[in-house]
Amino acid sequence: MIIWSGRGIFSILVLLLSVALFMSVLGNAYLQYAFSLSFFVAGVFSWVMGRKWNSDEGKTLVDKKTGQEFSVKPHHSIFWIKMQYWGPVFIILGLLVMFLMGQE
């Protein structure tokens, strides 16, 4: 089960779509490259778009009954971790896949 908030699911979707694309283009002979490239693409996407989407200052709302102001900020995450922090994780996973599968 994948738990996300906001647009965080797009990181997983980009990863899955890029795996499908690279597997169809590169085939089984270059399996390690297909997975590594997919992790790199998902990592760059997560970092760039996560920083953009989570950097919004949000909205300040006023409670009509109490007059108290509070701020609502966007939160785009996967498994309670902000989307941009998945970028380096995906890139590290891509490097691990490249080097570990390359030794076989």
Rank of each mutant, 00 (worst) to 15 (best):
W4L: 04
S5Y: 11
G8L: 00
I9W: 08
F10Y: 15
F10T: 07
S11F: 00
S11A: 15
I12V: 14
I12D: 05
L13D: 12
L13N: 12
V14N: 05
L16H: 09
L21V: 15
F22T: 12
V25D: 02
L26M: 14
G27K: 10
G27R: 07
N28W: 13
N28C: 08
Y30R: 03
L31V: 13
L37I: 12
S38L: 01
S38T: 08
G43I: 06
F45A: 05
S46D: 02
W47P: 06
W47D: 06
G50Q: 02
K52L: 13
K52N: 10
W53L: 10
W53P: 00
W53S: 03
N54C: 09
E57S: 02
G58V: 01
G58H: 09
K59S: 13
K59H: 10
L61F: 04
K64W: 08
K64T: 10
K64M: 08
K65I: 04
K65W: 05
T66H: 01
T66A: 07
G67T: 03
G67W: 05
Q68P: 00
Q68R: 14
E69R: 13
V72T: 09
K73V: 02
P74Q: 01
S77F: 02
S77H: 03
W80S: 15
M83V: 05
Q84F: 06
Q84T: 07
Y85P: 04
Y85L: 14
Y85C: 08
W86T: 08
F90S: 03
I92E: 11
G94K: 01
G94I: 02
V97N: 07
M98H: 11
M98E: 10
F99A: 04
M101L: 11
M101C: 06
